[in-house]
């Protein structure tokens, strides 16, 4: 099978296993961007589009098993805001450039699931998941203990840091003799509200004639607004032909 290409991408059919009848097309190109990314070194990275949802890292390794050693595979969701799209794009980083070039010259890709290293799907996969979900209490306890020990240690370290530094500066913390305010958004909002309220309190509400008049007017405006809203709603109902009683 000779592979076609479009806009610099080579098109390869990618099958799940050898006995599949139809296949997805993946689009492959060397990864080239101006910004440098350590995870995706230029010259070594292959950019793959339209990877079907069931393809795992292992699956892709299967697919490119003929090419050479793969350093890492980065799978990315296409668009984060779009729900329900499981197709991915991948960056495959090879150990050396030869492998990458070889990959681009490939005639065909291996199936994702091979006999030697099968990718589990369907019932098998769900059964495996279920069995994995069963927890061993002792192991769990062990894990918690190690995590908490680490965490406590981290906390301890932090506490020690809060002492005076060499130049005599003291770090203000929540605890201590004169705790500073914690920098929280909600707290700042509260403070703002408080100051606003304080200024409001100083005002007299119905002292001047204009204030009384204003409040009356406001009253009317409220009524009008309500009326408008109701009118709008009735208009909508009318459009929905709601008023035909029978």
């Amino acid at each position: 099978m000779t592979s076609e290409s479009i806009q610099g991408f080579k098109i390869f059919p990618l099958m799940f296993s050898a006995n599949c009848t139809s296949c997805h097309n993946v689009f492959i190109k060397e990864h080239t961007v101006r910004t440098h990314d350590e995870q995706k070194p230029s010259g070594l990275t292959l950019f793959v589009l339209n990877i079907p949802p069931y393809a795992t890292e292992a699956g892709l390794k299967n697919a490119f098993s003929n090419v050479g050693k793969i350093k890492r595979i980065i799978l990315e969701d296409t668009a984060e805001d779009q729900r329900g799209d499981g197709f991915k794009r991948a960056f495959i980083v090879f150990n050396n450039r030869e492998s990458l070039l070889k990959a681009l010259k490939l005639q065909k890709l291996n199936p994702i699931s091979s006999d030697i290293r099968p990718v589990k799907v369907g019932l098998e996969k769900w059964i495996e998941e279920y069995n994995k979900g069963i927890c061993n209490p002792e192991e769990l306890q062990e894990e918690i203990n190690t995590f908490m020990a680490k965490y406590d240690e981290g906390n301890q370290n932090q506490k020690e840091e809060t002492l005076e530094d060499e130049e005599g500066w003291t770090l203000v913390t929540k605890t201590g003799r004169r705790p500073g305010l914690s920098r929280k958004e909600s707290l700042e909002n509260k403070l703002n509200d408080k100051s606003q309220k304080a200024t409001k309190k100083k005002e007299l509400k119905n002292f001047y004639t204009f204030q009384i008049r204003e409040s009356k007017m406001k009253n009317i405006v409220d009524l009008r607004k309500k009326f408008e809203e109701a009118k709008q709603k009735v208009q909508l109902m009318k459009q929905a032909r709601k008023f035909k009683p029978y």
Partner: peptide
Amino acid sequence: VNAGKIVGEKVIFNTDAVIEDFYIL
């Protein structure tokens, strides 16, 4: 290009492959 295949210069939905995906999954 997701779930698509190329026909001519255009991308169209790869119905057969997706249905086969349903079967595989």
